[in-house]
Computed example of a mutant assay.
Amino acid sequence: MIDRLSEFDLDALTVLIDCLETTPTLSNEDVEHRYRAHIRNVFPAMLEDGKSYGEASGGTMSFLNRPDARDYIISIHDDLGANVAILSGAFAEYLDTGEPPAPFYAWRICIILAKGKMRQLELRFLNAWVRHFEHRGVGQRYKILVQRRTKLSATSSLIS
């Protein structure tokens, strides 16, 4: 349950949104080039050392390799700061590796903001997120985020 969102977490989210809004989007060619270079670095560790992709690539999402990963994800379910930190790191890695962030954390941020009745901030976040990932990610959750942005935009224009 969301009682109150901390100013620190909201400030961290604002920094992430500012970054998403001001960072130039990557072209398809840029993404492909970065991702191929990333795979060339990760693949040898997978083949030679028997590591999983997550172990070999490390980074923000490496917590998923821990035995308690599921418990950790459940524990941060309504933690705006933790979800923002994960997404911030994953976005920085996307700019380096071309691998889009898992949309789950963006979705959780939206849910937390909706529960906190912060629809305008949620819409600003979604506009910034969709700017980078509307046509980049594969899967239902990416589509849900785009649909949510569309719905919030329509609702927001009716209220304004």
Rank of each mutant, 00 (worst) to 15 (best):
L158W: 09
I112T: 00
V130C: 15
M1G: 11
G89P: 02
S75L: 04
D11T: 04
E7R: 10
A154P: 08
D11K: 13
L123F: 10
K151S: 10
W107M: 10
R149Y: 05
A56L: 00
M118Q: 15
V146K: 13
D30V: 07
A106G: 14
S156Y: 13
V84A: 04
A56K: 00
T150Q: 14
A82N: 00
Y53K: 00
R40F: 14
A90K: 02
G139M: 08
E122L: 09
K51F: 04
R131A: 11
D79V: 00
D49E: 14
D78C: 12
E48V: 10
R149D: 12
T60W: 00
A69S: 05
R149E: 15
D30P: 05
F125H: 01
D9L: 01
D96M: 14
V130P: 12
T23V: 02
A102K: 03
F43N: 13
F91G: 03
R124I: 03
S156F: 14
V146M: 07
E7Y: 08
A56I: 00
V42M: 05
I2N: 08
G58S: 06
F43E: 07
S6L: 05
L123V: 08
A128M: 05
I112V: 09
L47A: 13
I74H: 12
R66L: 08
R148E: 08
E93H: 04
D3V: 14
H135L: 10
V146T: 14
P44E: 03
P100D: 07
A82T: 01
R141Y: 05
V31Q: 13
G50W: 00
H77M: 04
M118G: 06
D3P: 14
I112M: 09
G54P: 00
T14A: 12
R36D: 12
G54T: 08
E134F: 01
I76A: 00
H77G: 10
S160M: 08
L87S: 02
A114K: 14
D3F: 11
A12Q: 07
D96H: 11
F133P: 06
A45Q: 09
E99Y: 14
L121H: 08
C19H: 10
T22Y: 06
E134C: 04
V146D: 04
H132A: 04
